[in-house]
Design a protein around this nucleic acid. Structure first.
Lengths: 228, 228
DNA sequence: CGGTTCTTTGAGGACCATCAATACGCGTGG
DNA sequence: CCACGCGTATTGATGGTCCTCAAAGAACCG
């Protein structure tokens, strides 16, 4: 249907173990699309006709209500989204927009549901991915309900530190205002939260963060395997 | 293995369409247990050896961190819990305690995973349940992040109203302090939130709630299909 | 380089948590 | 049946956290 090649998809865990037949079936009617930055790809309330996969770039999932908006999560390479809506054939509960120039793979939801039934390996992969996203959301919610905003920021910084292979200096991957929304606060408050973390050795220079005293920050943040 | 009978389980959507063979396999090593009220059934951090199902009674899922505790959700008849941890063979992210005398079905996680692979109907049911729980959590999170505490309470009352077949007078199903925790506030604040809803026709008498002016409450709460 | 957006800082106020004290509800045992 | 005790619910006072508004500075982009 399109001249695009889907070989790179096979690197994604979701498709790693499936048969060639399943793969052929899945990609029938699928396509790859390039989006510029800051484009709304899907809108909450719309039906989930395609399973989306971020091949490259960066996508923000967000939600709105009554003139308010909040960032739910941010996705990078090889992340899927709207998997639950795809499987249940329901409307999306979140909207998605690109934060950078991004390449998005779109697979018809019907194909996903039908291969799910015919290929047990794919079924396992789907349920694995679904469980992973579900558990990530539970962690996120625990973070929001059990910690203050400053504690959330401190733990966010520690998570970034770990994700980059224990690097003490790094750049924030997203704008501060989006980070603020993700952490459940206003941009103004995020600024002040950074100031509050200064005594614990957090140095901020624009998007550049340096953790000058890891032990002190950990002592303050109390990271937890069941949240972070 | 136990003299308990599992027939009643078949009423649960999760098991509705499975074969007798799958059912036999699933219930091998399974058991039913009666718990008194206020007993911690599972603890976060423990491995999920069993899929749990509330056959009767009421179970609260909660989480703790650094001396704080929060109610994540409350479950009633025919609800499953720790399904994601079961499927991924990981530790539980939440603890569970009974809020009433409850009857809990426990099915070995291994059985669930193995029947998932052998019975496509069961696989569909599992992914359906998983997606349902996932989406419920997303809704919950949107509720928490996009609404003030009073708005959350107003929408909670409207949800109770709808769940009971549009009944304007009903009893709260749980204690107020647990409701407060679920809604992300303190018991004191819940009291004041109820007071704040008086002008919108909410009458409170202990656990008994009466919605005296439905339109006014709806106008204030702005319920949303994508949250509630 | 100019305009736009983002970030920061300050002031003020709304919301919410904590602490403390009292009232209420309920189950138990006298 | 009533008295008692315990946990829950309410109410008030207070302080902290966080949001809003406003303005200035910084970064980004065409």
């Amino acid at each position: 249907m399109t001249p695009e090649r889907f070989d790179s998809i096979k690197d994604i865990p979701l498709f790693a173990k499936i048969t060639d037949e399943s793969f052929e079936h899945l990609t029938r009617g699928a396509f790859v699309q390039n989006f510029p930055s800051n484009v709304e790809i899907i809108t909450e309330g719309d039906t989930a006709d395609f399973l989306h996969i971020v091949q490259s770039g960066c996508v923000e999932l967000f939600s709105t209500w009554s003139n308010r908006e909040t960032t739910m999560t941010t996705l990078y390479e090889n992340s899927t989204f709207i998997l639950a809506a795809t499987m249940k054939d329901r409307v999306n509960l979140m909207s998605a927009r690109t934060l950078q120039k991004s390449r998005i793979i779109m697979i018809p939801s019907e194909n996903v549901r039908s291969v799910f039934q015919s290929d047990p390996h794919f079924a396992v992969a789907i349920v694995d991915e679904l469980s992973r996203c579900y558990r990530a959301t539970i962690r996120n919610m625990k973070n929001l309900k059990l910690r203050t905003s400053i504690e959330r920021l401190a733990n966010y910084l520690l998570k970034q530190y770990r994700r980059r292979g224990n690097t003490l200096a790094f750049r924030l991957p997203i704008e501060k205002r989006r980070l603020a929304s993700y952490l459940g606060m206003t941009p103004e408050n995020l600024s002040r939260a950074f100031t509050n973390l200064k005594p614990y050795g957090v140095v901020v220079d624009g998007q550049n963060i340096t953790i000058a005293d890891l032990d002190k920050l950990i002592e303050f943040a109390i990271p937890d395997d069941l949240i972070d």
